[in-house]
Design a protein around this nucleic acid. Structure first.
Length: 466
RNA sequence: GGUGCCAUCGCCAAGUGGUAAGGCCGCAGCCUGCAAAGCUGCUAUCCCCAGUUCAAAUCUGGGUGGCACCUCCA
C-alpha cells in the first residue's frame, strides 16, 4: 500500500506500526445540520481506504468521531427551542442513515465528544502540568503555542506571519494571538460542564486528540495512530493544533501518515456553510440512488477537488449502469469467491493511493471483455464463474454493484407505476406476437414518455428507469 | 500580503522521464421486425515560451490562467 502523505507531500509506502494492524482516525461531522456532499466525499474516501486495507489482509481499527458539543449546536438548539441532545441525536441518526445509503460502513469506534470529557480534561491537566497550557483569570485554558518548538510543522507556516494575520480581536488574556482554547469558561449559565477551572466547554481541537489517545493510542509507540484523515481544510488549524496537543501531552506524535481529501465544489465554488451553496445529501438521495452518488464521488482521485454537476453525475450513472447490466446478465448464478488475476490487478491499482479512476478503467475493460465473450455462442462456464467472483470482489472493495440489479434500475418508481408498466409491457408483447409492430411501437413510445426504457432480450422484456 | 495546489480530446478523468488508460457525447458497422442493450471500429501529443536529457504531458526556469488555506468548515 502506498499513501500520499499530505504533510510530507509525497507518496510513501505504508508500514503500520504494529505488523498486520492499522489504526485510522478521521474527523467526523458536527451534528447540527444535514450532511452535504462534502461530508459524503470524506466519509466515502476513508470507507474505501478501510476496505482496501482490509482486502490487503490488514486488521483495521477505524474511529470517526461525532462532535456533539459545539457553539453552533447550541445556537441551533436555541433557535429551535429544543434540547441540545434532541438536535444532536436527530442529526446523528440522519447522518448514519445517509452514510448507509451511500454504502459507507460504520466505523469500528464512533466516539462522541460529550462522552469523552474525562479524556479531554485529563489532557488539559497534563498540558498545564507540562507548561504547555495556561489558565487565565477568566477561567479559560489556552494552549501555549510558543512552548511548542514544533508548532506549525504540520502546515509549514510561519509564526510571525500568523500573528500578523490575526484578524479576530484577540482576547487580552492570551499570551500569543496564535494560542488556541482548550477550555472556554461559560459564565452565562448556558450549556457547560464542570472542570477544575470552573464551568465551561472544551475547545474544538481538543476533542479529537483526547479521543484518539483514549480509544486508539497504545503505549510505547511513536505515533498515536497510523493514519489520520480528514478534509483538506482541516490541515490548518485543526490538525496542526491536534498534533501540538498530542505531542505536548504524551510521549508520541499524533499520526504517522496524514491523508486529506479534496473538496466538493458546486459550479466551481467551494461548498460551504457561509456561502450557503451546500448541496445536501438528503436532496441528492431523493433523485439518485445512493450508490450512483458513491460511484460518482469516488470516480475522481480523492485528493483532487471535485466539481459537482448533474451532467457529470448522469454520465457516472451511465457508467455504473453497465456494471449492473452485466449483473443482470449473470443474475441468479452462484456467487464465487475464487481468486482471479483481475482481482489482484484491481487491488494493486487501489493500493496505489486509492487510484479509483484507474480502477474504473480496469472494471470497464473487464465488463466489455466479458460481454464480448458472452455474446458468442457457448456456455462459458469458467468465464461466468470468474466474473461472478470479480463482481463480488468489486462489491467488497469498492462497494459498487451491491444491489439487486433489477431493483437498481427501478429507482424512484412507485408500485403503482410498476404495475402499470407490467400491464403495458404485456400488451406490447401481445402486439409483437401478432406482428402488429405499429401498435407495439406505440406502446413503447408511451412507456418511454414515462421515462422508462425497454429492452427485448432472449429472456424477456426488461425495463429500466432512465 | 503569506503558504500551497492545479492546467491532458466537446465534457469527466488516469498517467509524474520511455513515447497519451477509461467513461460520457458523436460518427460508422454488427445484432434487432424496428429499437434499446451489448459488441467492433474511428476521434487529443498533454496552457504558452525557454532549458536539461538519447528520450518530457511527466524534470528545471519564466509566463498566463484557475483554485484552496491563512476565519466555522469534510
Amino acid at each position: 500500500m502506498h499513501i500520499y502523505d499530505s504533510v510530507e507531500k509525497t507518496k510513501r509506502k505504508f508500514i503500520p506500526q504494529e505488523a498486520g494492524k492499522v489504526s485510522l482516525y478521521v474527523c467526523g461531522p458536527t451534528v447540527y445540520d444535514n450532511a452535504h456532499l462534502g461530508h459524503a466525499k470524506s466519509a466515502l474516501v476513508f470507507d474505501l481506504l478501510t476496505r482496501v486495507l482490509q482486502a490487503d489482509g490488514l486488521d483495521v481499527t477505524y474511529a470517526r468521531n461525532i462532535t456533539d458539543i459545539d457553539d453552533k449546536i447550541i445556537k441551533k438548539a436555541q433557535e429551535l427551542g429544543k434540547d441540545i441532545q434532541e438536535i444532536t441525536d436527530f442529526y446523528t441518526d440522519v447522518f448514519h442513515k445517509e452514510m448507509q445509503a451511500i454504502g459507507v460502513r460504520p466505523p469500528d469506534i464512533e466516539p462522541k465528544a460529550t462522552q469523552n470529557l474525562d479524556a479531554m480534561q485529563s489532557m488539559i491537566a497534563t498540558l498545564i502540568e507540562n507548561n504547555h497550557a495556561y489558565v487565565t483569570e477568566d477561567g479559560d485554558v489556552y494552549f501555549d503555542t510558543a512552548s511548542d518548538s514544533q508548532y506549525l510543522s504540520l502546515s509549514k507556516r510561519f509564526q510571525e506571519e500568523e500573528s500578523k494575520q490575526e484578524r479576530i480581536a484577540s482576547s487580552s488574556m492570551k499570551k500569543n494571538p496564535a494560542d488556541f482554547a482548550l477550555w472556554k469558561s461559560v459564565k452565562d449559565g448556558s450549556v457547560s460542564f464542570s472542570s477544575a477551572y470552573g464551568a465551561g466547554r472544551p475547545g474544538w481541537h481538543l476533542e479529537c486528540s483526547a479521543m484518539i489517545e483514549k480509544h486508539l493510542a497504545k503505549p510505547n509507540t511513536a505515533f498515536s495512530v497510523d493514519i489520520h484523515g480528514g478534509g483538506a481544510d482541516l490541515l490548518f488549524p485543526h490538525h496542526e493544533n491536534e498534533a501540538a496537543q498530542t505531542r505536548c501531552s504524551s510521549n508520541h506524535a499524533l499520526a504517522n501518515y496524514w491523508m486529506h481529501n479534496g473538496f466538493v465544489n458546486i459550479n466551481g465554488e467551494k461548498m460551504s456553510k457561509s456561502l450557503g451553496n451546500s448541496f445536501f445529501l438528503k436532496d441528492a438521495l431523493k433523485e439518485y440512488d445512493g450508490e450512483v452518488l458513491r460511484f460518482y464521488l469516488l470516480g475522481t482521485h480523492y485528493r483532487s477537488n471535485f466539481n459537482f454537476n448533474t451532467q457529470d453525475l448522469q454520465s457516472a450513472k451511465k457508467r455504473l449502469d453497465k456494471l449492473y447490466r452485466l449483473k443482470k446478465r449473470l443474475f441468479g448464478l452462484a456467487v464465487s469467491e475464487e481468486k482471479t488475476p483481475f482481482q489482484e490487478q484491481l487491488l494493486s491499482i487501489l493500493k496505489d493511493d486509492l487510484n479509483t479512476s484507474s480502477a474504473n478503467a480496469l472494471i470497464d475493460e473487464m465488463i466489455a471483455k466479458t460481454n464480448e465473450t458472452l455474446d458468442t455462442p457457448g456456455k462459458h462456464k469458467l468465464l461466468k464463474r470468474e466474473t461472478m467472483a470479480n463482481l463480488s470482489f468489486i462489491e467488497q472493495v469498492l462497494g459498487f454493484g451491491v444491489k439487486n440489479p433489477f431493483e437498481y434500475f427501478q429507482f424512484g418508481v412507485d408500485a403503482q407505476t410498476k404495475a402499470h408498466l407490467e400491464e403495458l409491457i404485456n400488451k406490447r408483447n401481445l402486439a409483437k406476437e401478432a406482428k402488429d409492430f405499429a401498435q407495439s411501437d406505440k406502446i413503447r413510445e408511451e412507456i418511454l414518455a414515462l421515462g422508462v426504457n425497454l429492452m427485448d432480450t432472449p429472456n424477456g422484456t426488461f425495463w429500466e428507469k432512465i
